[in-house]
């Protein structure tokens, strides 16, 4: 197990506040934020440029929603780890996101601790 390999984190959320919040609050040492995007389309561009290992993904976004974006990212890089961070609290949505390739689900609103726990769980096998 390679516990020190640094990982690149990309944040996708249409809310600037949430983007900044995740950037500020995430305390996993191996993760370093490489950029953030405000919708699915921007996320794909940024993904191509930065090749992140981990992504936090909002679902309700203009331009391209999160589920579609998850599908694109997983197609580009199957081993990417995606944590869906969304207010959509119904199970069908969670199933759909995970089926498309997401690896975790964090429901908004969240505390810093919940965020870090969710990220840690996501990375525990890496």
């Amino acid at each position: 197990m390679n516990a020190v390999r640094p990982l690149k984190l990309m944040i996708v959320d249409d809310s600037n506040i949430i983007r900044r919040r995740i950037e500020r609050s995430q305390q996993i040492e191996r993760l370093s934020v490489v950029g953030s995007a405000a919708n699915g389309r921007e996320a794909i561009d940024l993904f191509d440029r930065t090749d992140p290992d981990v992504v936090t993904m909002d679902l309700t976004m203009p331009e391209m929603d999160g589920i579609e974006c998850v599908e694109h990212l997983v197609a580009k890089k199957p081993q990417v780890l995606i944590l869906v961070v969304s207010a959509l609290a119904d199970k069908a949505t969670a199933v759909e996101a995970i089926r498309k390739g997401a690896n975790g689900f964090l429901c908004k609103p969240f505390t810093d601790r919940q965020l870090n726990d969710a990220l840690a769980e996501l990375l525990q096998d890496v």
Binding site: S15, T60, S86, A87, L88, A89, D90, A92, T93, C107, K108, P109
Partner: peptide, 14 residues
């Protein structure tokens, strides 16, 4: 507004 509405899907469904 988004969070409160989104959370409502827990009870109201997809």
């Amino acid at each position: 507004a988004n969070t409160i509405s989104g959370n409502a899907r827990r009870d109201f469904g997809k």
